[in-house]
Every structure is written in structure tokens, then in C-alpha cells.
Design a protein around this nucleic acid. Structure first.
Length: 289
DNA sequence: CGTCTTTGACCAGCGC
DNA sequence: GCGCTGGTCAAAGACG
């Protein structure tokens, strides 16, 4: 259970082991720096904001002294992208990481799989241990300082479960995108070490534009029109629709990332800030140093 | 009446 | 093999 040494323990952040795989910080950054080249479009593509701030991937070099550390993980050599996102608010911190358990080599068949999945889930969910373990969609998570658990991100979610998690006094909520044929899911929980931090983990890719995304944002607007979901007065409520990645209109969410994003050095205060979500890191990556 | 939340139960994966 | 834990289902209730 303990793989660490310089490895961030998400348990300390989440109070559970959902992010069962930890990630050597060094590795993360190695990847981050090099990933800029290797990963085509990187995770920003997933987010649909690749055209926003190219310097985004400079985080590996910036070594921002900020107290907030964002990390991007790309566990899956192929299609797992993570992204970082950080509100400009000094007090707020948003740490994100992406990962994937989609260890499968197959591409994510968004349409087919999703439809199938939906039909399956109707009755017998039986994920069927077809070949390997259960396949998961690429996931990535981020921490956001907020008083509200469920942060608006432009999509409609339906809560389908809530569970108490080990080592945490806060329950974890499970949401699913209400849009038909879109099986994006997300988990929301609070860091038990810092109740003010909300940890949101997205899984899957939206196959549709944000249902409540203002047209202005959808159109061009150069994505400069952030979609405000500041329904909550908290300055820490991030408004983002990270799951738009993969979608053709990915850029529609660009505005959501208008916030200052920055990748910072993991070495610094990441740990203090409860680290990031090293959610599911393929073992091979760990091996690869 | 339709949609969403709540909540207990079930199932699968994983560690011991 | 067993127990723990995470993830999901689905019925019931709440709400607009």
C-alpha cells in the first residue's frame, strides 16, 4: 500500500485511496516538460483549450513559486491527458492532474461504447471482466477551494451515488452527465485534511457541448467569454468544463480556462497544499522512471 | 408529472 | 479464500 518516497500521497488529501496510484513528482515533471513535445495537443486538447495559452506547458520550466502546484499527468502514453488549472485567486488553489485507468490500448470509442454502456447499465451493469480489469475512461482531477461541493462546470449532472470514503469524514458523491449518450462521470469529495478543498475527478469525455453554455462562448469569441457559473459567491468556485476535451467544439470551453493557469513545480508547496491527484498512474509509467 | 436526490444494497477489484 | 473498499444500481422520496 505504500509506495511513496517523494510520492505524493493522495490519501492525505482525499482521505481515501481512490487515487490509488501515486506518482513520483519527479516523474510528473519530467513528463510535463517533455510532454510538451511528445504529446500532440496534449491534454489541452482534451480540454479543448489548446489554442488558449500555449505557454501553459511551460510549467515545467517555470517552477512557479506559487503555493499552488498544478500537475499534468499523462499516464497513458497514448491518450491520457491531464491539465492544470489554477485560479488566479491567491487564496484559492486548484490542483489538477489527469490520469487514466484506460489501460486498454483501444482508442476510446466514445460513441459506440457509450451507447452500449448506457444500454448495459440499464439492467445488468456487469462491467464484465472481459479481458482485463475494468476499463476506465481517462480521468483527471483537480482540487478547488470552494465551499460548495458540486461546482458548476457547464454541464448537467445527476447524482447517482454517495459513499463514505475511508479515512475521510466527508462522503464522496458520484455524478453522471445527464446528457443521453454521454457517460461522463465525476466524483466530488472534500479533502479531509482541508475541508475547504473540493476534489473533483472527471472521468470520460463529453460527447456534446455544454448544454448550458452560452452561445457567445460557443461561437468564436475566441473563447474569451468565460462561462460564469459563479452562482456561488465564493471566489474559489472555479468555472470550468474540463470535460469538453475530445469534443469537436472543445474550444467552447476555452473561456472557462480563462483563469490563470499555471503549472508549477511540484517540489514546492504541493505537498503542503495537499498535493495533487495522482489518480491512477499506469504502472509502466512508474517503472519508466 | 417529470426530474433529481437520497440511500441501502449489490458487485467487483484488491490486499492480506 | 476472505474481508475491505470503491463504484454503481435502483427504489423511494422530495421538489418544482
Amino acid at each position: 500500500m505504500e509506495r511513496k518516497e517523494g510520492v505524493l500521497k493522495m490519501e492525505e488529501v482525499l482521505g481515501n485511496s481512490s487515487f490509488s496510484d501515486y506518482f513520483p513528482l519527479q516523474s510528473i515533471f519530467d513528463w510535463s516538460c517533455e510532454g510538451g513535445e511528445n504529446m500532440p495537443l496534449g491534454f489541452m486538447e482534451l480540454l479543448g483549450v489548446q489554442d488558449l495559452n500555449p505557454p501553459l506547458f511551460d510549467m515545467g520550466q517555470q517552477q512557479a513559486p506559487s503555493a499552488v502546484v498544478n500537475q499534468a499527468l499523462n499516464p497513458c502514453s497514448t491518450k491520457n491527458e491531464g491539465f492544470n488549472y489554477q485560479p488566479a485567486t491567491p487564496n484559492s488553489s486548484s490542483i489538477s492532474s489527469a490520469s487514466s485507468e484506460a489501460v486498454n490500448d483501444e482508442p476510446i470509442q466514445v460513441d459506440d461504447d457509450q451507447e452500449e454502456d448506457q444500454q448495459k447499465t440499464k439492467k445488468q451493469l456487469k462491467p464484465k471482466k472481459t479481458n482485463q480489469k475494468r476499463q476506465r475512461e481517462p480521468r483527471f482531477a483537480f482540487m478547488t477551494k470552494s465551499e460548495v461541493d458540486h461546482l458548476e462546470d457547464g454541464y448537467r449532472w445527476r447524482k447517482y451515488g454517495q459513499k463514505a470514503v475511508k479515512n475521510s469524514s466527508f462522503p464522496r458523491s458520484y455524478y453522471r452527465c445527464t446528457t443521453t449518450s454521454c457517460n461522463v462521470k465525476k466524483r466530488v469529495e472534500r479533502s479531509f485534511t482541508d475541508p475547504s478543498m473540493v476534489i473533483t475527478t472527471y472521468e470520460g469525455q463529453h460527447t456534446h457541448p455544454s448544454p448550458i453554455m452560452p452561445r457567445s462562448s460557443l461561437g468564436g469569441g475566441a473563447g474569451s467569454a468565460p462561462y460564469h457559473y459563479q452562482q456561488h459567491p465564493q471566489p474559489f468556485v472555479n468555472t470550468l468544463s474540463p470535460l469538453n476535451f475530445g469534443h469537436n467544439n472543445g474550444s467552447i470551453n476555452a473561456g472557462n480556462f480563462h483563469h490563470e493557469r499555471r503549472f508549477c513545480s511540484p517540489g514546492s508547496s504541493l505537498l503542503k497544499d495537499h498535493g495533487l491527484l495522482q489518480d491512477v498512474i499506469p504502472s509502466h509509467m512508474l517503472k519508466e522512471e
